[in-house]
Design a protein around this nucleic acid. Structure first.
Lengths: 288, 288
DNA sequence: AGAATTCTGTATGATTTGATACGGAATGAG
DNA sequence: CTCATTCCGTATCAAATCATACAGAATTCT
């Protein structure tokens, strides 16, 4: 099946009769909306009669006009749902630019990725994808959610992923076995919590690799970290923003998934099978 | 007349009745194609009855459904004839200097806030700031981290914040006491988990207010939700992106903090004092 | 708590739409 | 020039669609 009906119509233009070709040209001239109108409107637009439109559609291989429209609709929907395609269509004030909070978020992301060293990013991806290592993730009061988020994904694409949770009494237990084959991923932004700093220093002291995702005012942990990814976190609010940290996390997750693609695929498939087995209410792909 | 019906629908969202708003959300979620389907399909997609769709369209000022569709068709035709739109459809990597993943993230954020109805956002802020209510937050396999993140912030600026965690066996316990004075905030994106759907339905059935933060393919929960905030989640990766969800969460947190400013200030101050007492290594307070 | 009002789905009617049969027009062959 | 074949539009029918009236449900107000 051609990716677009437009191409198929163009290719098969000679097969059609003279009047059917009028219909084809009318469709190509205003693709795909002409085909989403009623038969009568399509016919009028093409200067032919209704039955000609129906014969044209039938010759394209559609059992009914409704099927033809469904195809056009699906194509159009796929196009419109591409964020890139959509954003280029939106005007500036439709881009939600008025809200200063939104402005800051967008600027933070742009700034973050502009300053993000790609080699550092790739190095951290390789580190996280290395299945000989054990990955420990930990975060502060608010950023712990990010550690958890990343752990949930990493667990699927690789083994030996540990989320260091709970009160810092427990952290000590985790510290005991740490060594050169361990990687500690730390999320830490302003109001750096001393417990986490201690944890990082102790882990580094025992030979573990420390990877840090932080704000642009580097946390004290950066002294002992072998990899640092800084993000912009300032927004017009008493709180700092973790959106850029989340973005970095997702880039790392996507990267690791790409590197460990074979394992990722089989484990995700297994997960999907499990889900289907337990979930007969799964939605159909198209609900339009 | 607004340049796009989408903006008008967003602006006038509060004029509509509860069910009409469902129709509006369905339209915004799949704009404009949902409105180009038949009334019955539109109704099914929105989870309401056909007459509600017609009343919704009538309230927008259209004498007939056909006029409404004509307007959508005209808008779409204008868009599709824009050179920008064509180019974005033709080749994706013409502009490929930047990382496509980053491009998608940025486009997702822009798109998300462009489609985010401000009145809906403010309504949800008021809801979350209402200290007479109890806030329950819950998320799915991956989005649970967002629920946790939001709970960590809300707990500081208001009382009665509960994160519904753990296996869904525990959820049932939480369900028991739910009533009209409870607000359930749900994070749910594609691969909607049936347990969460059941939780939402049960909560709504007991009179609790359901607020949903979801992807643009509205989750089934939107049927029982009184507030819905949709986000863009598609990225070039096997995973969906939660960055836009995080951004929305932070806007909500900032909003609630602003509304409950007096309480927020005193509680944040208390937190700071506590930190200072325990943390002599604290860095200088402001270095922004 | 009860009444009034608004809201929303079911049922039904009027209209439009997709689909088809059939007769006439156009084209080409012999 | 005549016949055969293909093609195309008018007329018509069954089915789906839009539209509305009405009654039950929900909400608000007193």
């Amino acid at each position: 099946m051609a990716s677009s009906l437009r191409l198929e119509v163009q290719d098969r233009l000679e097969e059609f009769t003279a009047t059917e070709r009028k219909a084809a040209h009318a469709l190509l001239a205003n693709y795909p909306l002409q085909g989403l109108a009623t038969v009568a409107q399509f016919a009028k637009g093409a200067g032919v009669s209704s039955p000609t439109i129906l014969r044209f559609v039938a010759r394209l291989g559609f059992p009914a006009y409704a099927d033809f429209q469904a195809r056009l609709r699906a194509e159009l929907e796929a196009q419109l749902n591409t964020p890139l395609a959509r954003s280029s269509v939106l005007s500036d004030k439709e881009n939600g630019a008025e809200d200063p909070f939104v402005e800051h978020l967008l600027a933070n992301l742009r700034e973050t990725f502009a300053n993000l060293p790609r080699v550092e990013l790739e190095a951290m991806v390789r580190l996280l994808a290395d299945e000989r290592k054990t990955i420990h993730l930990i975060g502060g009061r608010f950023t712990d959610a990010l550690a958890r988020y990343m752990a949930a994904h990493l667990r699927i694409v690789r083994p030996d992923v540990v989320h260091v949770a709970g009160q810092h009494g427990n952290w000590l237990d985790q510290l005991i076995g740490l060594g050169p084959k361990d990687v500690v991923v730390i999320f830490d932004i302003r109001r750096y919590q001393t417990e986490i700093i201690h944890f990082a220093e102790a882990a580094a002291g025992q030979g573990a690799t420390v990877a840090l995702i932080t704000d642009s005012w580097h946390s004290p942990i950066s002294r002992v970290a072998s990899h640092v990814l800084p993000a912009q976190v300032a927004v017009p609010s008493p709180w700092d923003s973790s959106t850029a940290l989340m973005a970095i996390s997702e880039m790392l997750i996507a990267g690791v998934t790409r590197v460990n693609s074979e394992r990722s695929r089989e484990r995700m498939q297994a997960l999907e099978d499990l889900r289907n087995a337990h979930d007969p209410l799964r939605r159909s792909p198209d609900q339009l």
